[in-house]
């Protein structure tokens, strides 16, 4: 299956990227786009972050599912919940009739000792729960807002690491099932997010190869966030343009227009260079999201980005969206 189509068919999308690239924004946009395409979506927040509920105007997320987008004529519905590692561990033990044990673990501080004795156990329980939700049939798509970049590798590597460390027993079985999910390109894809700047692109390329080589996960398209929309008229001199359009400019106006244009052109040139470099270094389709020139993420912004994703999903190909 082509990576671009995978976005519209895989049951689990894991969204990962370095801090500051808009990973949560992209998670929200992917969820809304899928819901608009008729899929019932669950968003999972593994870090208990704050920005997603604000965008949808709902209260902070909890372990219980909350509606982000109602199911209506044009939407199949988006739901969201948190799934922190400690929650996952306690639920795991409770489900196995070990409530008393789980209480003890917290009160004696043994929980930290265990998590250290078995690195990755918290992650594997989170991913195990994701797999359970995928299999529950309650949702068509589960979108996981993964930990930030460096941690994303550790997070996704937890299953293969645990298979070596714990050879038998229920944890081993859990790790095996998670590894099956992660390495099944039909069921699960990792979507890497970046912005078109040097360091974020470097880190994305590194993460991509490490995820493919070390974890064996299948990557979906790369999402490049904050791409400047094209403004072909910026090379024009403001004074000439004003004369041509019969507009009188006040003092300082031409200079402001010229400075703003020069600033934007310089930044756009950097973006273009980085987009090309990304395409050359990583042969994956790119989905490009426009810079909305706002630092507020509300429902209107999420919808605009979701529309941009929907539009491109049929057409994404390596190195370009044109």
């Amino acid at each position: 299956m082509e990576p671009a189509q995978s976005l519209t068919s895989a049951g689990v999308l894991i969204v990962a990227g370095k801090g500051g690239v808009g990973k949560t924004t992209v998670t929200a946009a992917l969820a809304v786009a899928a819901s608009a395409a008729g899929r019932r979506v669950l968003v999972i927040d593994v870090e208990g972050r704050a920005s997603m509920p604000t965008a949808f105007g709902v209260d902070p997320l909890t372990y219980e599912e909350r509606v982000l987008v109602d199911a209506a004529a044009e939407h199949a519905g988006v739901f969201a919940r948190t799934l922190t590692p400690d929650d996952a561990l306690l639920e795991y033990l409770n489900e196995r009739g070990l409530q008393r044990l789980s209480k003890r673990l917290v009160s004696t501080g043994l929980l930290d000792v265990i998590a250290t004795a078995i690195p990755g156990i918290r992650d594997i329980l989170v991913l195990g729960k994701v797999k359970q939700l995928e299999r529950s049939g309650m949702f068509d798509l589960v979108v996981v807002d993964a930990p930030a970049a460096g941690h994303a590798i550790t997070f996704l590597q937890s299953a293969s690491g645990l298979l070596d460390a714990v050879q038998v027993g229920p944890i081993n079985a859990q790790a095996r099932e998670v590894q099956e999910l992660l390495t099944d390109a039909e069921r699960c894809r990792v979507v890497l997010v970046t912005i078109p700047e040097e360091t974020p692109v470097n880190e994305l390329v590194e993460t991509a190869y490490r995820l493919e080589d070390q974890v064996g996960v299948a990557l979906g398209p790369v999402v490049v966030n904050g791409v400047h929309p094209d403004l072909p008229g910026l090379a024009v001199d403001p004074e000439l343009a004003a004369a041509e359009s019969g507009v009188a400019l006040v003092a300082g106006e031409a200079e402001a227009l010229r400075d703003a244009a020069a600033f934007r052109l310089a930044r756009t040139a950097v973006q273009q260079e980085q987009l090309e470099r990304l395409a050359a270094e990583l042969p994956l389709p790119q989905l490009r999201l426009p810079d909305l020139f706002t630092s507020t993420l509300g429902r209107a912004e999420v919808d605009r980005l979701a529309d941009a994703l929907s539009e491109q999903l049929g057409t994404a190909r390596p190195g370009g969206t044109a």
């Binding site: 403004l231 072909p232 008229g233 910026l234 024009v236 403001p238 000439l240 343009a241 004003a242 041509e244 359009s245 507009v247 402001a256 227009l257 703003a260 244009a261 600033f263 934007r264 810079d291 020139f293 706002t294 630092s295 507020t296």
Partner: peptide, 27 residues
């Protein structure tokens, strides 16, 4: 208002910059 004239893109660019700068200051 100026969209379609040769000042259009220049003004959109300035408006984008101002809009983002204002949102940032507000935060």
């Amino acid at each position: 208002t100026l969209a379609g004239t040769s000042l259009g893109d220049l003004y959109t660019c300035l408006a984008d910059a101002r809009q983002l700068a204002a949102a940032e200051e507000e935060h």
